[in-house]
C-alpha cells in the first residue's frame, strides 16, 4: 500500500508541516535509531525503556513558524519486571498543549498487560494560565469498577466485566509485540478494553493486522479502533519494537531503546 518513497498513508503527513519535511524527519529518526541500535548495550531483565519523538500530524496552520523544530515533544515508556508484574512509568511531554503527563501503573499479564492495583497520573501545565498541576489516582474496585480520585473527589470512570483484561494504551507498546503472532495466525481481531491515558475507558477496542511493508524499513502494521477511539496504526519492526505509532493527531517515532524486553 505504500509508495516507493516509503511514505505509507498511515504516517505520511508531509502536507502537515513543510519545513522540515515530516517524512524526512520520520525516516531520518528511524534510520539513525537503527544505525545505533546494532551497537546498543542491552541488559536483559533490567529496566527497559523506549523513547519516541512526537511528530505532529495536523494541518500546517496550527503549527509554529518555519523556524520551529518539527518535533513537538517526547514520550518515554519505562518498565521493569518485578515478581511477575510489570511496573510502568510513562512520561509524555507535549510542547503544543503544554501539558506534561507522568503516568505510573502496574500490569500482571505478559500478553495483555492487565492493570492491577492502583495507578497514578501527575499532570503539569507549562502554559501561562491558572491551571498548573493535577494529581489523579485510579484503581479497580472488585475488578469491575474503574474509579478515579482527584483532589479528594472520587468519580466512576466506567465499569468493565470481571473477566475482562483492562489495559492502558501505553502498554500497547508491549501488548502488540506479544500478541502479534496470535493476531496474524488467527486472522481475527483481538478485543481489548483500554483505559486511555489511565483516565478514559474505551470498552470496545479492537486490535487487528493491517499489512506488511518493506519500505522505509520492514514493518508489520496493526490497527486499533473502537468506540470513542479514532483508528490508530502501529508498526512493529523485526526486532519486536513498535517503531511507529500513528494516532490521529500525532506520530510517535522510535528514537531510542535502552535495555531488552523481559
Amino acid at each position: 500500500m505504500n509508495d516507493n518513497s516509503g511514505r505509507h498513508w498511515s504516517f505520511d503527513y508531509n502536507h502537515g508541516a513543510q519545513n522540515p519535511q515530516f517524512a524526512q524527519e520520520l525516516i531520518g529518526t528511524l534510520r539513525e535509531y537503527y544505525a545505533e541500535t546494532t551497537a546498543c548495550d542491552t541488559r536483559i531483565g533490567q529496566t527497559f525503556t523506549h523513547a519516541y519523538n512526537i511528530l505532529p500530524n495536523y494541518w500546517r496552520g496550527y503549527g509554529g513558524g518555519a523556524n520551529e523544530e518539527l518535533s513537538i515533544g517526547t514520550a518515554i515508556i519505562e518498565r521493569n519486571k518485578d515478581n511477575g508484574f510489570w511496573n510502568y512509568s510513562v512520561h509524555y511531554e507535549n510542547t503544543t498543549s503544554g501539558e506534561n503527563l507522568r503516568m505510573q501503573f502496574r500490569c500482571s499479564d505478559k500478553h495483555y498487560r492487565s492493570l492491577t492495583d492502583s495507578w497514578r497520573i501527575d499532570a503539569r501545565n507549562s502554559g501561562d494560565d491558572t491551571y498548573s498541576e493535577l494529581r489523579c489516582k485510579g484503581y479497580l474496585v472488585e475488578d469491575s469498577e474503574v474509579r478515579l480520585r482527584i483532589n479528594g473527589n472520587e468519580i466512576l470512570a466506567g465499569t468493565v466485566g470481571a473477566s475482562v483484561k483492562l489495559t492502558c494504551n501505553w502498554a500497547l507498546f508491549d501488548v502488540i509485540p506479544a500478541l502479534a503472532q496470535t493476531i496474524r495466525e488467527s486472522d481475527d481481531e483481538i478485543d481489548l478494553v483500554l483505559l486511555e491515558d489511565l483516565e478514559q475507558l474505551r470498552p470496545k477496542s479492537r486490535l487487528g493486522f493491517l499489512e506488511s511493508i518493506q519500505t522505509p524499513f520492514p514493518l508489520d502494521g496493526y490497527y486499533l479502533y473502537g468506540t470513542g477511539l479514532l483508528p490508530s496504526y502501529w508498526w512493529l519492526d523485526t526486532h519486536g519494537d513498535i517503531a511507529i505509532a500513528s494516532t490521529f493527531f500525532e506520530t510517535l517515532v522510535l528514537k531510542e531503546k535502552i535495555g531488552e524486553n523481559a
Binding site: 510542547t95 502554559g127 491558572t130
Partner: peptide, 8 residues
C-alpha cells in the same frame, strides 16, 4: 481569568 489556553 483563563484556566487553560494551551502553551501554544
Amino acid at each position: 481569568q483563563t484556566l487553560y489556553y494551551g502553551q501554544r
